[in-house]
Amino acid sequence: MSTALSYVERDSVIHQMTGTTKLFFFLFWSVAAMITYDTRVLVGMFLFGCVLFKISKLKWKEISFALIFMFTLMAINIVGIYVFAPEQGVEIYGTRHVVAELFWRYSITLEQLFYMFNFLMKYMAVIPIALLFIMTTNPSEFAASMNKIGISYRVGYSVAIALRYIPDIQRDYREISQAQQARGISLGKDEKTLDRIKNSAAILFPLVLSSIQRIETISNAMELRGFGKHKKRTWIMAKPMGKRDYVGIVLSIAILAVSVAMIIVNGGRYYNPFI
């Protein structure tokens, strides 16, 4: 099983969109989810996000690891909110419906539960789209579209190059750490913390040196083939903007507009069912 999130090749409408579209979509969508606490908007976005995920033909098991990781973070976050601000919901919504009294200043109120639910929904609205963006965008094509919207191709290419060599460096790391373990250098739990830090240096030192050598080869190879010769370059992986791209961008702007409109209608960022 692969645990890392990376591009997955599939044939879907979402894969066919350009990287630029998906970047804009992701940005507008995130802003829309960030500015509002309106439950109706957030739930709507979450459901819509799930539909898009379905359309992308990505599989559950390809994201399960990442999801578990993110859910853990979210749980920690939610618990943190309750511990530090158990009355935040009451403050926001202006009423106090107690469900149960616990101890000291901690009690469970409907307002707090609702606030935390909304908070959760903000994550839930963004996660599917973030995953989609990462997993349906071919890095090379993305570099091409970044360049198209005016960002220097050197920036885009350094991202693509990093992605290209990550597996190589992972392999180096594995091989170096195995060979070092054979010399008794372990990073296992039975070592003292100080020893673990020292031991990890014994693995990182050769890894960094071999990576520097690799970088020298790469930059030579790139220069010998004319990288940086002109202000612009073309891309074999570039995709032209199609109808679906314009639809996508318009859609994301519409969602942002709805989110903003609801703030005006509600007279604030919160939708208040308690009054």
Partner: peptide, 21 residues
């Protein structure tokens, strides 16, 4: 390994021409 710049064979072969626009 080090001189293979593209993510795929296609991109690597095209690299020099891309730089030539």
């Amino acid at each position: 390994d080090g001189q293979f710049i593209g993510m795929t064979v296609l991109e690597d072969i095209a690299f020099a021409m891309e730089n030539d626009m």
